[in-house]
Design a protein around this nucleic acid. Structure first.
Lengths: 224, 224
DNA sequence: CCTACCGATCGGTAGG
DNA sequence: CCTACCGATCGGTAGG
């Protein structure tokens, strides 16, 4: 008889990770026991330890797998569309939203549970996140050099990430509104907002309400 | 000797809550032990239980206290400025950001740890959150009736909350960029974005990239 | 307000 | 002698 050799080892590993991600997202990493994971997977706890060294390794794989796919997305868009920065950023936003739709559990885990990892793993994952933020900040700096020069490209990128990343708290699967269907609205809000935003050094920061143009008038193309 | 009678009971309660909120925000609710809280407060664990029935009560007080202040903010703005919806919404955003600046721990706890509360407490807090969302959605519906009629006023409100609520992940205290100084940028991004956003029923949702106007041209006032 | 504990459950691993 | 697991239980620590 031929030796079966680790049957579907990689398949099992992936199945366990999907399962663990769902539980971590629901009950939190610390609030989920290895026994919970085992039961949900239909496996014994010792079997879990055959596939993963410990609980932390599961967490690290879930978070890093997700952020790695985001980095790949960033790099593929950078490679594919050397052209207009606006089209590139819009493609980035839309692809991110499609990715998020299929990775909601992993995304919540990345957001809320990475803090429980040992420093080495945490830093490795944070560095990949920084890589993603930088890509967005660069695109924003190209669209609005004044904002970039004022050092506000990253803050604006983070505000954009806020719109998109916060969606996991309220956009539930199975409803009519989906990640894909809301993408154009997100892009509209952001691109029109970015085009209209006042330059930081124009002095209006000290008197936020007094200086706003009426929203019913056409937004300024760009300040000064 | 006169009995001191509950000295500074309420003061101690508040001090413990501040302390606990900082720990919960840092290590998570489940990841924080009552002993951690006791040590950080400079109290014994049994003393903690003199001020709070159990760990859940601390969590509930932190989260509900924060969201209650947000509801009060909403109601005070509704009472004070019966006038222009845009000015009211801008005031709401700015006051929220100022509140967030002083309640970053509580805000993180509200965001990440309410799920660990018993259903009764959780629902009570969620209802207050819904009250806040509705106020924002109403203001947005007044500014863009077409978006309101399409049922997108709440989604747009949630996108706005995303920008603002996500800030706790990246805006660290002690830097030059503060909640107050970024408020005008947030308002600009949102109001110009809202003014330019295409109406949902205009058909562009099926072809997101093809239909966008160039961001360099002036945004449309409003669709059709 | 402390030391000393409890019932239970944690993450991880023994023998078979 | 290997990989792939099971039932049972380890030493420590959680909330109370």
């Amino acid at each position: 008889m031929a030796r079966p050799r680790a049957d579907n080892y990689e398949g099992q590993r992936e199945a366990i990770l999907k399962c663990a991600a769902a539980l971590f997202a629901q009950r939190g990493y610390v609030g989920t026991s290895m026994n919970d994971v085992a039961v949900a997977c239909g496996l014994s706890k010792p079997t879990l330890y055959h596939y993963y060294r410990d609980k932390d390794e599961m967490l690290a794989r879930i978070a890093e797998g997700h952020v790695s796919r985001l980095v790949e997305l960033v790099e593929s868009v950078e490679a594919d569309s050397p052209g207009a920065p606006e089209a590139r950023l819009e493609m980035l936003i839309t692809r991110f939203l499609l990715e998020y739709a299929d990775a909601q559990d992993a995304h919540r885990v990345l957001t809320e549970d990475v803090k429980f990892l040992p420093k080495v793993d945490r830093e490795r994952i944070l560095n990949k996140e920084r890589r993603v933020v930088e890509a967005y900040a660069n695109a924003i700096g190209l669209l609005r050099p004044d904002i970039g020069k004022a050092g506000l490209d990253k803050p604006v990128a983070m505000l954009l990430f806020g719109m998109v990343n916060w969606m996991f708290t309220w956009l539930k699967p199975g409803r009519s509104l989906t990640h894909a269907s809301i993408a154009p609205l997100v892009c509209d809000l952001f691109f029109f907002g970015l085009a209209g935003a006042t330059a930081p050094a124009s002095g209006r920061r000290t008197t936020p309400t007094a200086c706003r143009r009426s929203w019913t008038s056409a937004p300024a193309r760009r300040p000064a």
